[in-house]
């Protein structure tokens, strides 16, 4: 059996197999099977690297897809394993060509070029304008699904520039086995939007920041934390809960900001699983709807118990996921983006 180099050996070696990540992992929580835990998946990657398992091993393929990519395993890891990077490499290697589902191929295709993304934004989002502040990123699916989020963000950051000539940041591609294209799209976006880039999506912020550098990319709550907007407290006082964005919290360590901002306008209730993935996980909710719902279900129980007015999200994917979950359960709670609550 020959040692191949799919993964950077230093990234794999860093894992000391201590198992501290097991309790943090939502998919391990569902199955209790080591192979669907971060440590187990790293051992699968090692087996692929060593050639002990073939590339088309069904369990390895299944686990590379069952993983939410939420990176909850990173902050709890004492050895600093960069799991997110390992997962991107894994999918890059294993999901070549036909192993991707038609649905995924369509998603990636539709966001791979700026003109296709612009088509999604034909419904009016935020009005174009040239400001002196950061450039507002409009997102890809967000343009079509939640144009009001960009409008609200534009209102909160009066100096922001808004241009419609912008494509996808490539996070979708990087997380789904097209690392190189994901990087190229981020570079292109950095070119189209010069200077500081502001995004209303935690997932995009983490990806874009990893390519363009964190000092050029700001997520909305991060930006507003440093540039507090003028807000008026809600009346009657609303009760809200936060749903963290996984990559924002686990990848960038940002989660306090949203709570501080919200405390200005509403009563903030902390859900026990606020930091745990809601199951949206980028394209996951579309590709694996059943698993995605199983992940969400426990959270919906908590929301029902907390009986808040709003669950506030920091990512359009989470917003869509929670909206459809809340509707399905017929709960009175509504899901809303941070920008919309504050503006």
């Amino acid at each position: 059996m020959s040692e191949r180099s799919i993964f950077e050996p230093e990234l794999l070696d860093r894992c000391i197999s201590c198992g501290f990540c097991l309790p943090a992992c939502p998919t391990y929580g569902l199955t209790g099977v080591e192979a669907s835990s971060p440590r187990g998946r790293i051992n699968l990657m090692r087996a692929l690297q060593e050639g002990t398992l073939p590339d088309d091993d069904p369990t390895a393929l299944e686990e590379s897809s069952f993983c939410l990519g939420c990176r909850a395993c990173e902050p709890v890891c004492p050895a600093g394993v960069r799991y997110g990077e390992l997962l991107e490499t894994w999918r890059d290697h294993s999901w070549k060509g036909r192993r991707r589902s038609p649905m995924l191929r369509l998603l990636l295709w539709s966001t791979a070029q700026t003109w296709r993304v612009r088509l999604m934004g034909l419904r009016r989002h935020a009005r174009r304008r040239l400001g002196t502040g950061p450039s507002l990123m409009l997102g890809c699916f967000e343009r079509a699904l939640f144009p009001s989020v960009s409008r609200a963000a534009a209102a909160l950051v009066p100096g922001a520039s808004i241009s419609s000539h912008q494509g996808c940041c490539g996070a979708l591609h990087a997380h789904n086995g097209e690392r190189e294209r994901g990087r190229r799209l981020a570079v292109q976006l950095g070119y189209d939007l010069p200077g500081t880039i502001l995004t209303t999506s935690g997932g995009c912020a983490a990806h874009l920041g990893s390519v363009l550098g964190g000092d050029r990319v700001f997520e909305l709550s991060e930006w507003l934390g440093e540039h507090p907007p003028a807000v008026t407290p809600s009346r009657p006082r609303l009760r809200v809960a936060v749903q963290d964005s996984c990559h924002l919290r686990n990848g960038m360590g940002i989660w306090r900001e949203a709570r501080t901002l919200l405390a200005e306008v509403a009563e903030v209730v902390e859900l026990p699983s606020a930091s745990a993935c809601c199951g949206a996980a980028g394209t996951y909710a579309l590709l694996r709807p059943r698993d995605s719902r199983r992940i969400l279900d426990a959270k919906l129980d908590e929301i029902r118990a907390a009986d808040v007015d709003y669950v506030v999200t920091l990512n359009p994917g989470c917003l869509r996921q929670l909206q459809s979950g809340l509707r399905r359960r017929r709960l009175r709670t509504r899901a809303i983006h941070l920008a919309e609550v504050l503006s």
């Binding site: 198992g19 099977v33 192979a35 187990g40 051992n43 699968l44 398992l53 369990t59």
Partner: peptide, 27 residues
Amino acid sequence: RDDPGTLEAYARDATPLHRGAADAVCF
């Protein structure tokens, strides 16, 4: 479970340098 991938995940614990190969894992 007795698929090679799952068996691989149960081939070791937190101890470096030691590994085995189970025939089945049972819960």
